[in-house]
């Protein structure tokens, strides 16, 4: 009785090890099951999700116009202080002063990509882009101005 159990244990143990080895052997010989992507080599074919939060951008249309009113909602919503709005006063055709955006400064090095600024924006002026290769040699290059030089606000956008 003891001998029988002893050998049964050895049989079971060997079988359990061989079951695992069989599975490992299966994947060793079936290369189609390999899912690994080789990143720098596949850069051209790499498709990231559309919603992937990589950095904040401000889309401009063909006339170099954006929809940012300079209301500072994104600056208030940001938990890290990575957005700074510098505003100016435009003179409207009627001769009145109107608050407008001068520079939308975005600190990429402070940003945690939480997406709260995009959610807070009332005019959908900023959005998250799915670019992710942000390495630079000089830290100052990470401080970006989002509104392009010479751009102006689209007509009909009110606060």
């Amino acid at each position: 009785m003891f001998l029988k159990e002893y050998f049964l244990d050895i049989y079971k143990a060997t079988k359990s090890l061989l079951t695992g080895m069989k599975l490992t052997g299966y994947y060793f010989t079936h290369h189609k099951e390999i899912l690994t992507e080789e990143y720098p080599e596949n850069r051209k074919s790499l498709q990231l999700a559309e919603r992937f939060r990589g950095e904040v951008i401000m889309p401009h249309d063909a006339n170099n116009e954006h929809t940012c009113t300079g209301c500072s909602s994104c600056e208030i919503a940001c938990p890290n202080g990575s957005i700074k709005i510098i505003s100016k006063f435009d003179i409207t055709p009627e001769g009145k002063k109107k608050k407008a955006i001068d520079q939308h400064i975005y600190h990429l090095e402070l940003c945690t990509m939480c997406g709260l600024c995009v959610e807070a924006c009332p005019t959908d002026a900023i959005k998250m882009a799915n670019t992710f290769e942000h390495s630079v040699f000089n830290r100052n290059h990470l401080i970006k101005r989002l509104n392009k030089p010479g751009s102006k606000i689209k007509e009909g956008i009110e606060e």
Binding site: A49, R51, G115
Partner: peptide, 22 residues
């Protein structure tokens, strides 16, 4: 990948907001 597609991030999603989802 499912998370990345819907929430916009793979690990630190920040998808929940008070009152629902983002």
């Amino acid at each position: 990948e499912i998370m990345e597609e819907t929430c916009g991030a793979r690990l630190t999603m920040n998808y929940m907001v008070p009152g629902g989802v983002m």
